[in-house]
């Protein structure tokens, strides 16, 4: 699993790649956290279960990341570890993290929502899965 962010003039793109779709989705989730703070600073103390379903894979990525945005906003948490399974348009995941600690996490900005801009979920030529989109901060 690999994750990175990419440039957008006003906001930030998040991208995950991996040998499986689930790994790419977990990578995109880590990239999402990295927009807010350094994921390495977040201790996996507490788990939250997330499930979503969508008619298309790219919509499923949007739903997954939006579910994390919602969980972070309403639970005042940040996440750093993700166990994801994806099958037949359904995603089930366990996200591990802890309560926001402004001093320790130095969170720069909350993510407001996940856009359809640069949205792509696809298998690349080398067989690896890619999952990416731009998020609004």
């Amino acid at each position: 699993m690999h994750w990175e962010t990419f440039e957008h003039e006003a906001d930030v793109g998040v991208r995950g790649t991996g040998g499986t779709l689930a790994e790419a989705f977990a990578g995109a989730a880590t990239a999402l956290i990295s927009v807010i703070c350094d994921p390495r600073a977040v201790q996996p103390r507490e788990a939250v279960d997330i499930a979503c379903a969508a008619p298309e894979l790219d919509l499923l990525l949007v739903d997954w990341l939006n579910a994390l945005v919602f969980a972070m906003a309403t639970r005042h948490m940040l996440f750093s570890r993700f166990e994801v399974t994806v099958a037949e348009g359904r995603l089930a995941a366990r996200a591990w993290g802890e309560a926001v600690d402004a001093e320790r996490h130095q969170p720069a900005a909350e993510v407001k929502g996940v856009s359809f801009c640069e949205l792509r979920v696809a298998r690349q030529a080398d067989g690896a899965w890619l999952a990416q989109c731009v998020v609004d901060v």
């Binding site: 703070c37 001093e103 130095q106 969170p107 720069a108 900005a109």
Partner: peptide, 8 residues
């Protein structure tokens, strides 16, 4: 609350 936020 965030020096990283200030940098960004």
């Amino acid at each position: 609350p965030s020096l990283r936020g200030v940098a960004e």
